[in-house]
Design a protein around this nucleic acid. Structure first.
Lengths: 182, 182
DNA sequence: TTGATTTATTAATGTAGATGAATGCGATTA
DNA sequence: TAATCGCATTCATCTACATTAATAAATCAA
């Protein structure tokens, strides 16, 4: 599931593009947003609030899909920026491709797993955000995405967790301290 | 979209059941969880954390579907309780019904809309939880679900928002106070 | 109706995490 | 070779919200 070959059949016209680290490939307010499948590299989606603060919604490394489903399902301009945290190879689908009405049965079926998986991930994230402390969320993040911390600066992990870099720094310090005594 | 007729075709064997207010129709730890479509009444799903505190994940009134997608997609026992906040009429689907392999093309298509909509809602919820204050989340809740506050006790709204009843009470007091001067 | 149980509110106090500022440390560019 | 920039860390202070406790109102059970 979620393999490249599965995805590619969704849209035979989809093209693989290469982007450089730091490139913004989708901006907030865009009304025909795309969906991006990551072949290589690392992308993120995020919002910027009225105070100018970034909130990272999702990281997408190899094999993941990144898109603004809210925007696509309700045909609204997107709230999400998407940019590259590493030089990346990305398959670009146009928005029609993920609108239910436009899809063939075959395409839908392949799509269904991706969507169910995304719902599961989001469900878990909401419950974590509501019920767990920043420290617990950080530990869960390390468990769930053990390879990501090597590729992502701390401040972005903090942003994903919904805390400041300072708060994450002090959590890490306390973890180290408590490890010394055990 | 999301109409009863659409849903019912998903599983012609699905049965409508009636439940009383207060009935728990799914418990945490259950390994074959169900999906519930609300014909009438009001349901909620929630977790209970290790301190015994409830965290409401989702309300479902007429026309909504409630289920633990995480459990179903990954075939794990559910973390979610589901119970009735009002006497309700509910269509009960067994978990197989939402597993992709078991669905006809027709069923899949109807399912896809429901899933896309759910992703959109969850995406919005995550972003709100990360970036908005309790007061802003409350106002957004009132905007998005204007009819719910009449049917749900405050403490459950608080739980949905991720705050305590006391905090919600003081938010409401401040809103009233500021309205007096405008 | 009465007593018991839940609910909303208020207030006092505590705390996780935000904010703002200072420091040192690679990394990039000149 | 600096000189500049972004990043992580530390510290002092502040604040949004939690916790605890008390009270009154509303709901439910007998």
């Amino acid at each position: 599931m979620n393999s490249l070959s599965e995805i590619l059949t969704l849209d035979s016209n989809a093209k693989t593009k290469e982007f450089k680290r730091g490139e913004i490939i989708q901006r907030e307010g865009t009304s025909n947003s795309f969906a991006f499948y990551v072949k290589k590299g690392l992308l993120r989606s995020y919002t910027i609030d009225e105070k100018g603060k970034e909130h990272i919604f999702l990281f997408a490394s190899e094999g993941w899909l990144i898109a603004d489903f809210e925007s696509q399902e309700f045909e609204r301009p997107t709230d999400l920026f998407i940019d590259c945290l590493e030089d990346s190879k990305v398959v670009v689908f146009n928005r029609e491709c993920f609108k239910v009405a436009a899809l063939s049965d075959e395409q839908l079926r392949k799509n269904a797993h991706l969507m169910a998986r995304r719902i599961a991930v989001l469900q878990k994230r909401v419950i974590m955000l509501m019920s767990a402390s920043a420290k617990d969320r950080y530990n869960k993040f390390l468990e769930t995405y053990p390879e990501l911390p090597n590729r992502i600066p701390q401040r972005m992990i903090a942003s994903y967790l919904g805390i400041t870099p300072q708060a994450l720094s002090s959590i890490r310090r306390n973890v180290l301290k408590s490890r010394q005594f055990s």
